[in-house]
Design a protein around this nucleic acid. Structure first.
Lengths: 219, 219
DNA sequence: AGTGATTACTTGACAGCGTTAGGTTAACGC
DNA sequence: GCGTTAACCTAACGCTGTCAAGTAATCACT
């Protein structure tokens, strides 16, 4: 067998598949750049196409419509968020794990405001039910599921006050506490009305406040 | 002087002013209804005009553009939110006052999701700097200022843990904790991914958690 | 009473948007 | 070579927010 054979998939059919995926990725990259630069709303299909020297209609051969394109980026970001959080999974103490997850989650939001915006600040059942892309409760892929599992572990170890029974409710409480600060800062950072404190410092305080306020007794 | 004179402003000039304000109000009412029904984005100037039997361009004699129309509604809602909260102002204990304000704020959000959305979940320095409509720090009109003042009162009474010094930071912490839950519920209520707990129950828990986690010692 | 100015509103249009029907062109299996 | 597939383009549709210009009624004033 000659060494000139392409490494993974031989044959020109496979090459065409690869080429199609390549332009698909170029569309995604261009869209992401423009979304980050100008926001989702202000980014037009024409602009995305122009950036990679295609006609707008070419995009529709790769994505059903603009929303499907957004959803694809959203899906990729959900995975990258989850894999950023999962590195914290080894920390043995559930409470400390929650604390560290919170800080990492906030970092993700502040570092990627544009992604954060269309992940958590816009309506849309981001997963078409027939074609689930993210595996639920796989911590590699589902950050929310990971949080719920961690909270559940804390509940079973009796680390929280007795009024907390539902792991979903407590997880939503933690999550939304952070989300509030991140999203307000993204949406209203320019508002002269509010004198914003350093958001990362506030996040640290907020995480501590929520843990202290929900855990059983303690020193 | 004959009694046929109109009550408040005499003269037909004044009547014209009143008529102009009347159609302006009709535009605002129609816009509000459509915004609530279909959302801000999906509501067109043409639809607003059609609802009150005007041409779309008539609106532009009363509002600079669509954003100015939204901002006017936003401004009205800010005042109605503030006056809903100010009724709680008499409660003497600052902590209890914060707790009650939190619950009232959440009620406003859950009861008026559409208003809440364009008040707190969309970008825009909602106040044109040259023409401030809401009086800052007047609790009747500025809900955020009211919260900051209450937090400051608590700080001065030594009710909070020593790491809290900045009244803005602590106010933002409380506020954003609630905002997170409200906004996530508005944006993602339909998302099959998350098993939402009863949001009002979670709000109650969240308020208690945040107060317990931030106040000094205590039983 | 007549005249000119003001103004609330309409007509008709513009550019730009997301999207689509239909045509072109190249590579494919046979 | 031939029919098929499919990636991409051309041209257009209906929709959007917005505007320049026109109309008609009311105003203030001589």
């Amino acid at each position: 067998m000659p060494s000139s054979t392409p490494p993974t998939p031989a044959g020109s059919a496979a090459r065409r598949v690869r080429q199609k995926e390549a332009t698909r990725d170029r569309i995604l990259d261009a869209a992401r750049e423009l979304f980050v630069e100008n926001g989702v709303e202000a980014t037009t299909m024409r602009a995305i196409a122009a950036r990679i020297d295609y006609t707008p209609t070419a995009i529709y051969h790769h994505f059903r419509d603009k929303e499907a394109l957004i959803e694809e980026l959203c899906y990729l970001d959900f995975r990258s968020l989850a894999s950023a959080l999962v590195r914290i999974g080894e920390i043995p103490d559930p409470l400390e794990r929650i604390r560290r997850m919170g800080l990492a989650y906030a970092d993700f939001g502040f570092d990627n405001p544009s992604q954060y915006k269309f992940m958590f600040m816009t309506q849309s059942s981001h997963v078409p039910l027939d074609k689930v892309r993210v595996e639920k409760n796989n911590p590699e892929q589902d950050a929310y599921g990971f949080l719920v599992m961690t909270v559940d572990e804390g509940l079973k170890k009796g680390l929280f006050r007795p009024e907390f029974q539902d792991e979903h409710q407590l997880a939503q409480l933690f999550w939304s506490g952070l989300h509030g600060l991140i999203s307000l800062h993204i949406a209203k950072a320019d508002d002269p009305w509010i004198e914003w404190s350093d958001p990362r410092a506030t996040i640290k305080l907020a995480v501590d406040v929520m843990l202290r306020g929900s855990r059983r007794q303690g020193p």
